[in-house]
Nucleic acid binder design. Structure first.
Length: 129
DNA sequence: ATCGGAACTT
DNA sequence: AAGTTCCGAT
């Protein structure tokens, strides 16, 4: 029996493309970026101190050289309905993670990693099986 | 600055 | 599905 462990880089369900909120948490986790983005205020709340730089770094990661905060923030806004993030109104460049919807798990690469709870709105017709 | 529709990409 | 690009409205 063949064990399909070997090659599963970007296409397999387990290891897909980097999500923006993963990337945000990645920066948040590193102290060297505290001048750029950092936790601030309530639990799960963070402020983007240098929007242009965060956008530049995100663009680097996704190979999107024309990335800017206008576009990045649009992506963040899509998280509102997904209940991953929401805006802290009144506070400039400040957002807050919805940890009610975001589950904490251990992860080998990071101290902590957050995975999104499966929405499971998917119709499991299972044409494959 | 922030929001969200719309068309488009992967 | 998860953004990216563009943009008019607030």
């Amino acid at each position: 029996v063949k064990t399909p462990i070997a090659s599963s880089p970007e296409s397999s369900p387990g290891s897909r493309q980097i999500q923006l909120w993963h990337f945000i948490l990645e920066l948040l986790q590193k102290e060297e970026y505290q001048g750029v983005i950092a936790w601030q205020g309530d639990y799960g709340e963070f402020v983007i101190k240098d929007p242009d730089e965060v956008a530049r770094l995100w663009g680097l990661r996704k190979c999107k050289p024309h990335m800017n905060y206008d576009k990045l923030s649009r992506a963040l806004r899509y998280y509102y309905n997904k209940r991953i993030l929401h805006k802290t109104k009144g506070k400039r460049f400040t957002y807050k993670f919805n940890f009610s919807k975001v589950v904490l798990v251990n992860y080998p690469l990071l101290d902590m990693k957050f995975i999104c709870e499966e929405e499971s709105r998917e119709n499991v017709t299972d044409g494959v099986k």
